[in-house]
């Protein structure tokens, strides 16, 4: 079954206030539960803020480490979900649900299928 990565993009800056976040998290839990019950949920994760990231980059024979995210921007990847779906329409259906729950843009992108990818 083809898999799709649903990426959550969120604006930089701290977390929203608890009274804003609380209903969003509740809706998000509901969508995740629905995904599991439908048997499409493969894996999901929420990420610590981009300041906690470290980039490893090859320079010559060495690998250089730098503090912070690889890309600096106004938004960052806040979390992701991998789902199984027979086609893009099905995957977009879940993408819409996820976007509706957390009110942030969701990028839906197919994964290569087959072993070794």
């Amino acid at each position: 079954m083809p898999q799709y990565l649903l990426t959550i993009y969120q604006p930089d800056g701290g977390e929203p206030a608890p009274e804003v976040l609380e209903p969003i998290m509740r809706d998000l839990d509901a969508v995740n539960r629905e995904m599991r019950e439908a048997g499409v949920w493969v894996f999901a994760g929420g990420l610590h803020p981009p300041e906690t990231a470290t980039v490893a980059r090859v320079t010559g024979d060495d690998v250089l480490l730098t503090d912070g995210p690889y890309l600096e921007g106004k938004e960052h990847v806040g979390g992701f979900t991998v789902i199984e779906a027979p086609d893009l329409d099905a995957a977009l259906g879940w993408g819409r649900k996820l976007a509706g729950a957390i009110t942030l843009p969701i990028e839906v992108r197919p994964l290569y299928d087959g072993p070794g990818c």
């Binding site: 893009l88 995957a91 992108r109 197919p110």
Partner: peptide, 10 residues
């Protein structure tokens, strides 16, 4: 092809 846009009438 990659994203599997389905070949069907909605």
């Amino acid at each position: 092809r990659a994203a599997r846009i389905p070949y069907r009438v909605p």
